[in-house]
Design a binder for these strands. Structure first.
Lengths: 228, 228, 228, 228
DNA sequence: CATGAATGAGATTTCATTCAT
DNA sequence: AATGAATGAAATCTCATTCAT
């Protein structure tokens, strides 16, 4: 359940490495089912098949292994998504593929939701790190797409948070609550919402792409809300 | 901080009623700052200025007062939002007003986020109830708007979850993390995303926005999403 | 075994007060026999006849009760000695009475030695406070005696430490090791050593007492220093 | 810091011998700074630069190495003092030189105090052995001096304990607490106290201080202790 | 000789809850 | 209605020691 982090060998023998991995896997399982506060070190070591004291040979505290778990999960998830959209060029296509990849990943790591979300309670900084890191990559991609005129010229961070929110609730509703991927209809409705939210209006951004004027017949110029 | 629930008097004297309210208010504060597991009954009774044993005169357990808190908060929030959009007719206007109302409410009840989200860990059913109840009302409103042609004919529940996700992350990003309302630019970008996501496409009938009545029963056939 | 500190009631009921006292008495016994590190909270609560958790109702930690014990013991001992020499005028007489009082006190509080000395390991500051406080009173008395010409004009603190050392080892040798008061001969030899160490030589200090030359032939004028 | 015990080779190779010595030196340092109970085997092995298991190749237990340390320190100290007074004839001169040597030794072995005193807690018999051995030698020297009339005819053991007490507190006050040798004034005051405590009274033969040789075999009849 | 992984007993401390007053 | 003393189960963490390599 967790071959997430192959590296970070701090001078362990092969055997030690294996034990450590068993503990990490056990922790993912136990934290996922019993929650952080409901999970005791004994639960983890029993699940890993080692003695209680062995835990402390590899981790200084319950919090430490939890943090490592969240970090590993975060890295693995971002890596997985990145690989899934590699090669795609169109941002809307990337969006679609990325969200599917996200859903697939959380489906596979069925405890990711429980673990990451509990981080908010257990270690708020870690939790923020998780989303900020995600948002950063997301924003960068969107900003690039904006430049290319693939998506509307909106604040990239705002879009990133909006999209993360949509995906998060999509995954919560179906993967977390029903333990299944979203029905196609639901998924498509969601994607449609996103795509229309992102897609450049024919009349805006024109400039972006060469300074051309918008075609006539324009509907809803909803632009200038000159606020602030 | 919590005159949320005036009712539910189970045969208490005026004094008893006051003590109970003090305990509820204390619990909101204490759970909000120290988290559920970090908060002890002693913390709550001290904050309320009563003796330890007094707690159990009013609540059967720590979990019970937490549940009641979440329920009260949920009810108060939905009531607040409903009032804020009462009288509005246009769905996009409702959306905008509703999200502003949401932001205002969580800004005022600064612990709402922490408390509600921790419910996921403490009592998962309660947590789902919270969002399902919200989604139900949301979906109903959207379905109506779809019927009226004010928004695209997408699955109402899907839209509701997408919108809840966007709002949730908006509030998290600014109110929870920065303890302030979102900057106008950020807010508008988010609203713009939402509005384009919801608004009927110009080519779905265009008329919508010209003051024309929506055609009855029209269903938006989620159109060409060209991508590759 | 410990009615040492009657005061310091921090808002406890009579019953609570009694429980606290039982714990203090139990701690004196348990620390005395099993040593600080050998004594567990369970040992103490069992000796006191209360449940484990009860300990923490009255003391925040094992260290706290230990500290309080040492402080109480120190105060009681100094009070006891002070009372024993009250009314005496001659310093050598005071010395003798004081040391006898010390021996009697440690004989009665048979664990005082073990407890106080272990303080050096457990809380070094506390240990130093113990001896510094003792030394301060001791020095003051000796300085006064020097002024009166009752003892030789030596640095008072040096004498105080020397005398504390002698007493400490006397008590260790007999009370701690043999659980008895020193044999008279041993005690008298020790006192003789001290007295000669302190007693003014006929040829020194003369000036001290008013510029008068020491009377001829007089041996040890140590007598009438009436004043005050 | 500890080339105290060169011998006791139980069939070790040169390399083993070196490892053992490193462990001893590490133990002195670690016990001295962290105390017996605060020091773990890991602390010692880390300080010695060997693996945890290596410790048990050379010592059967934590207690064992502690005992050996105390024994070595005791032997080294007595040897050092003996050498320092070798050749001296006058007991008062011996006393002075011996105490200076003691102070110098504990100054050099700055952890001696902490280690030896903690022995009282860790292994009471060892602790008594330490002082009894010291007292035995001390008493013998004093008894001889009494016979020679160099010091008053008091019980030798009583004098020995009194002198050990004085020295012990002198070292504690300055070396242990201030990490320095006592100021000369303080030292001289202490020596003066001791010398007058020991020196035969002028009326016991008076000659002592006039450069006259003491009469052979004289026994001081511990004189008038006039107290009330 | 040396290593370092593994053990498990045990210690301190927390805290929701009960109950007599 | 209110109090606060008492409980005991449970949790985290430490560490001396053993053992296979």
């Amino acid at each position: 359940m967790s071959t997430l982090s192959p590296g970070r060998n701090g001078g362990l023998t092969r055997k030690g490495e294996a034990t450590r991995a068993r503990l990490m896997a056990a922790a993912e399982e136990v934290f996922g089912t019993k929650r952080y506060h409901g999970a005791s070190i004994v639960d983890i070591t029993q699940a890993a098949g080692v003695a209680q004291g062995t835990f402390y040979v590899y981790f200084p505290s319950k919090l430490a292994i939890f943090r490592e778990l969240v970090t590993d999960l975060s890295n693995a998830m971002r890596r997985h998504i990145a690989q899934s959209v590699a090669g795609l060029d169109d941002r809307l296509a990337i969006e679609r593929a990325g969200i599917r990849a996200f859903i697939a990943f959380v489906k596979k790591h069925k405890y990711l939701y429980r673990i990451v979300r509990e981080a908010e309670t257990v270690d708020e900084d870690l939790y923020r790190w998780y989303y900020r890191t995600l948002a950063k990559g997301y924003s960068a991609g969107l900003a690039q797409a904006v430049e290319r005129g693939q998506v509307r010229a909106l604040d990239a961070e705002a879009m990133a948070f909006a999209l993360m929110g949509v995906s998060d609730f999509l995954g919560m509703r179906w993967v977390l609550w029903e333990d299944r991927e979203p029905p196609e209809a639901f998924f498509e409705a969601t994607m449609s919402f996103i795509e229309d939210g992102l897609r450049p209006n024919r009349d805006d951004g024109g400039a972006k792409r060469g300074g051309l004027a918008a075609e006539e017949g324009r509907v809803d110029p909803r632009p200038r809300r000159p606020r602030r």
